[in-house]
Simulated assay, not measured.
Amino acid sequence: IANSVSDPTGVYRTTDGGESWTQVLDSGGGNVVEMCPSNPDIAYAASAASVHRSEDAGQTWTKVAGHGFGWGPPGVLAGTPIDFQCDPRDPNRVFANNYLGGNFLSEDGGKTWRSASDGYTGAQIVSVAIDGENAAQIYVGGRTGVWGSHDAGSSWRGLRYPAPGVTLIGFEFGAVAVDPGERNHLLVNGDNHIWESSDGGSSWHVRQRPADVTSHAPIAFAPSDPSIVYTGVSETICLVNAGAACIGGRGVFVSRDGGTTWGLANDANIANEAIIDLVVDPSDAQLVYAATQRGVFRTTDGGQSWIVSTSLPADTRVGAIAVDPQNSSNLLAGVDEQGLYASTDGGENWQAVTAGLEPNSSIRDIQFDPTDPQVVYLSDLLSGV
C-alpha cells in the first residue's frame, strides 16, 4: 500500500509488486499508511482531516475519526500526520506523530485519541498569555489551537471547543490575549475570524472582522480601558519565520466593546501593513505602537492617524516592541538583523542598545518585569533568551 503525493491524492494498493496500482481510498487518508505487523489485514490511513481503518488488507476502508473537521483528543486538533505505528502486540493500539500537533495514542483502533506528549509537543506555539490575577493560569496560542494550564505549565488541556453549530475550519491560530479586567474573557486571532470566550476557553464564539481576512497577529487589550482592544493582520509565516515576506497586510482593527465587534483603525500610512507586534500605552488607550516590516508606527488617536518613526533604520522589519509599564516614555524595539533599540521619549527618537546581544539578532519578543522595569527579558531567534 502506498500514499499518493500528487493528484489524485489518496491511498493506492498493489498486489503485483508495484507493476500496477488501484486507488482504494481518496484524499481522506493521503498522508500516512500503516499496516500492523501482528495482523497485516489491519491497516490505518490518515490525513489532517480524518483517520481510516481497513480490516481486509486495504481493500476497503472505514472512517473511524474525523467526522467533523480534523481529529484528536477532546479540545485538540491533532495536526498533519507524519507517521503512524501499530503496537506490535495489539493492532488496536496506534501511535501517531503529527506536524503542528504532537504525539497521540489510540487504544481502540483509531476511534478516540489521547495526548502522549507529556514534556513535549509538536504544536508550533505563536503566543503566550498569563492571567494577571493568577500567574499559574497560562494560555498559549498555537498554529493548531489553544491550550490552557492551571498549574504554571506543569500540565495542559486543549481548548479547541467551537460554539454549537460552528466548525473550526482550518488549522491556523495565533495570538491569544487575556482581558485584564475579566480573567475568563479570552480573545484568539485565527483563520478569518477572531474567537471569543467568556468562560476561560471552555466554549468559543465567532467574532467577524470587517474584512474576511486571515490573521494571526497579536491582540492587545488597553490596560487602562480593557473594553478597547487592538489587533492587526499578518500571516502566520510572517510571525514565525524571520526571513519571510509579510504578505496580506490590512493594518489595524479596533474593538470598543471588549472584542465583540470590530472596525478598522487605519489611515493610508498603515492600511496595507502587515502587523507583527502591537502594544498599547499603559495609561492611554488611544496611544498605540505597531511593529511592521517598515518600522514602528504610532497613533495617538486610537487609530485614526498613524506616523512612522523616522529615527529607526529605514524600511526595516521590527519583530517586537514593548513599553515600560511604569514609565510609558520608555520603549524597546527589536530590529531584525540590527539588534535592540531604545526610546526614552515615547518613540520620537531611538538609539541602539546592543551591548551583550547578538549583533545580527532576530528579536521575537520583549518583556519588562512588571515590578522592576529595569529588568527586561527578550527572546532572540538566533541566540536564545
Rank of each mutant, 00 (worst) to 15 (best):
A271V: 13
G302D: 08
E358H: 15
V233E: 11
D324Y: 01
N92L: 14
G142Q: 04
I130D: 00
I138C: 05
T310Q: 15
I125L: 15
S198N: 13
A342E: 13
D199W: 03
D56K: 10
D267N: 13
S234M: 03
A129F: 11
E107N: 13
D372V: 09
G28F: 02
I363G: 05
G68T: 11
Q286F: 00
V240E: 04
I275C: 06
S115V: 08
N189L: 01
V64Q: 02
L340R: 03
G70D: 07
G153N: 07
P8N: 07
A177F: 05
P91G: 06
D16Y: 07
F297A: 15
A46H: 02
S198Q: 12
F221R: 08
H205M: 11
N266F: 02
S329H: 11
A265R: 11
I130N: 05
C36G: 04
P223R: 13
H185M: 07
A352M: 05
A342Y: 01
I307W: 05
L381V: 10
Q374V: 00
V240I: 14
A123Y: 00
V335F: 00
D257T: 04
Q208K: 14
D108H: 11
N3D: 02
G251W: 04
D281E: 14
I363Q: 03
N360H: 15
W306P: 07
W147N: 08
S383T: 14
G356I: 07
C238L: 01
E133N: 15
I228L: 09
A285F: 02
G334L: 12
S329Y: 04
L159T: 02
N360M: 10
R93C: 02
V178L: 10
N3M: 04
G68Y: 01
D83A: 12
T14D: 09
S227T: 09
D179G: 11
Y120E: 09
T167M: 11
I219Q: 08
G153L: 04
P164T: 09
S361T: 12
V24I: 13
V64G: 04
N192L: 11
V323E: 05
A78M: 10
C238P: 03
A217Y: 05
S362A: 09
A46M: 06
G110V: 01
V335T: 02
I125G: 07
I42G: 00
T261C: 04
L382W: 07
T300Q: 14
N269E: 12
